Computed example of a mutant assay.
Amino acid sequence: MNKILVLEDEPMLQDMMSSYLESSGYEVVSTDNYEEALSLAYESKFDLFIFDVKITRGNGFELLDELRNSGVGTPCIFATSLNAMSDVTSGFKVGCDDYIKKPFELAELLLRVQNILKRNFNHNQNDEFITINNELKFDILQKRLLKGDKMVPLAKKESELLALFLKNKNTILTRDDIYSQIWDMGEMPSELSLRVYIRNLRKIIGNEKIISHSKLGYEYVS
């Protein structure tokens, strides 16, 4: 049974969403505030988040951004009355997977939930963990680097960069390839920052794993 965290501060809508999803076969945990949602997301494993944006004592965008920066890659749907293009862009920049505008039909929400969970399930059928060496493995779904059972701290862009390298083993990635994948729309790519991320990754996984090709780019070698 898939487990869903619903963050919605309008009591009637929260109850309707939770009841409808439970009747459709999902386990649902619901809350109406930022801090409790954050604690729940850290303490339990969820298969999907559904976050309202304008919530009590916080903001859904900020909540997901905090979770993503902590290495939590659980897929997320934003449910919101905001409809400006800048709001949609903000949602996807912090790592959401889908967006549904209020007011919405519960049947539409269910279709979006089913679509994301199906996609996630198919992903999980592949190898979720990629072995780097005898000590390190990378959770490609959650974008977490693990040493044994303990998570190795990485900055958000470092984990995204490592994921990109592991998906393109033994292939030279140009700087433009990396910039387009790691830097969000509207962000200014930085050669200096990229070098710092590369240096930090090399310290952890080994200098020999990431090769610099002059005037071409970088290559992760397996």
Rank of each mutant, 00 (worst) to 15 (best):
E62N: 14
P11F: 06
F78N: 08
I211C: 02
V88C: 08
S214K: 15
D52G: 00
K45I: 10
Q181C: 10
I204K: 09
S24P: 00
D184R: 06
T89Y: 07
S212R: 08
N168H: 12
L173V: 05
F46D: 03
K54G: 01
K150E: 14
G206L: 10
R119E: 15
P75Q: 02
S70H: 10
L164K: 07
N83G: 08
K169G: 09
V152H: 11
L201C: 07
R57Y: 14
D184N: 10
T89P: 02
H123L: 13
F104W: 05
I205T: 14
T31H: 11
V53L: 05
A37K: 15
E105G: 11
N59Y: 05
L40A: 09
F78W: 07
S86M: 08
I182R: 03
T131I: 12
I140H: 08
G25L: 03
I204W: 12
L63S: 06
S19Q: 00
S70I: 01
D139C: 03
I130A: 11
V94R: 03
L110Q: 09
I77H: 06
E43S: 14
G60Q: 08
G71W: 12
Y218S: 03
N83A: 13
G206F: 13
K101V: 13
V221K: 15
E10I: 07
G71N: 12
Q14L: 09
S180Y: 10
I210M: 01
I4D: 12
Y99I: 00
K150L: 10
V28H: 11
L106F: 03
